[in-house]
């Protein structure tokens, strides 16, 4: 009996996931390949042939390609600093973690308050005499500004989650390794590159997978700052489901997002694979 007990205890959660996650997931997957009662790839065809698909795909990938590396660099830098601190460490962690407590829509709205025509940025620039009248930063004529604003909001909002994971990971690396590297001639940068970074791989994996998946699912921040001027995959899913009332194509979009997420997860797992025996 004690051998079965753990499984028994896990049963409710497993059942819950099966009923409320796996089952609907299968339904969506089925829906994406069903059109008017029969199996077909019609939904995918419709999705791809729509003019917004290419833009949404490009925007999503571009956003992830810009945001995630910046966040990776920032979170590594922040985690390195936090790890070195002897006092005030938790205080700093709490401050860094504040954006984590804010919903993504609220985060989008905060940055909208900065960038919109009557926002802080315009008031500040106007007050300083840099501009003569408020500028419409987030217009469809300035896609680069929209992109930059969204990227900035995303970086501000979600860097801390990576940092928290990396701080925990760095805490697991015994101090002796850094000291050994120091004695054997490594500079601070070499210690970081040759010792900390390789030994941080498991945490980097977790942090990157989490961030990359969330980057492909970016939605509320984009809606708040770009509206429909900056289509992304998740937004298109929403549009097809609710505005265009075509559940089949929405399901196809969902499957595409899933596919990209899985592909990148596998890629990250492969790239940051730690061979057996080389683990800490």
């Amino acid at each position: 009996m004690p051998r079965l007990l753990p499984y028994l205890l896990l049963l409710p959660a497993t059942a819950f996931l099966c009923v409320f996650f796996l089952y609907p997931f299968v339904l969506v997957a089925m829906e994406s390949v069903t059109r008017e009662g029969s199996y077909s790839l019609d939904n995918f065809q419709r999705m791809v042939s729509h003019w917004k698909f290419g833009t949404a795909m490009r925007n999503t990938l571009l956003l992830a390609a810009v945001v995630v590396p910046v966040q990776l660099a920032l979170s590594l830098a922040m985690a390195s600093v936090v790890t070195k601190l002897s006092t005030g460490r938790s205080t700093l962690l709490y401050i860094f973690a504040i954006p984590l407590g804010i919903s993504d829509l609220a985060a989008g709205l905060i940055w909208l308050a900065i960038f919109e025509q009557t926002g802080f940025l315009n008031s500040a620039l106007y007050g300083l005499g840099v501009i003569e009248q408020p500028v419409l930063f987030l217009s469809y004529q300035n896609p680069m500004v929209i992109f930059a604003a969204i990227a900035l909001a995303e970086i501000w909002r979600a860097t801390a989650i990576m940092m928290v994971i990396l701080v925990a990971g760095m805490g697991l690396i015994p101090k002796e390794y850094g000291e050994a590297a120091e004695v054997f001639g490594a500079t601070a940068w070499q210690r970081f590159r040759k010792v900390t970074l390789p030994m941080l791989k498991p945490s980097l994996q977790t942090a990157l997978i989490l961030r990359v998946i969330l980057a492909f699912e970016v939605f509320a921040v984009v809606i708040a700052l770009g509206g429909t001027n900056f289509p992304v995959l998740m937004e298109e899913t929403f549009q097809w489901q609710f505005t265009l009332q075509d559940r089949g194509v929405a399901a196809a979009y969902a499957m595409v997002i899933l596919g990209i997420s899985v592909a990148f997860t596998i890629l990250i797992l492969r790239l940051l694979h730690v061979p057996k025996g080389a683990r800490v």
Binding site: P174, E176, Y177, E179, A180, A181, E182, V183, F184, G185, A186, T187, V195, P198, M199, K201, V274, A278, R279, V280
Partner: peptide, 21 residues
């Protein structure tokens, strides 16, 4: 001077043999 400029080598109590190398 930093350790690397002292012409020393060290053997640590827990060996500190890098696991990733």
């Amino acid at each position: 001077l930093p350790p690397r400029e002292r012409g020393i080598a060290m053997v640590f109590q827990n060996y500190a043999v890098f696991p990733h190398l």
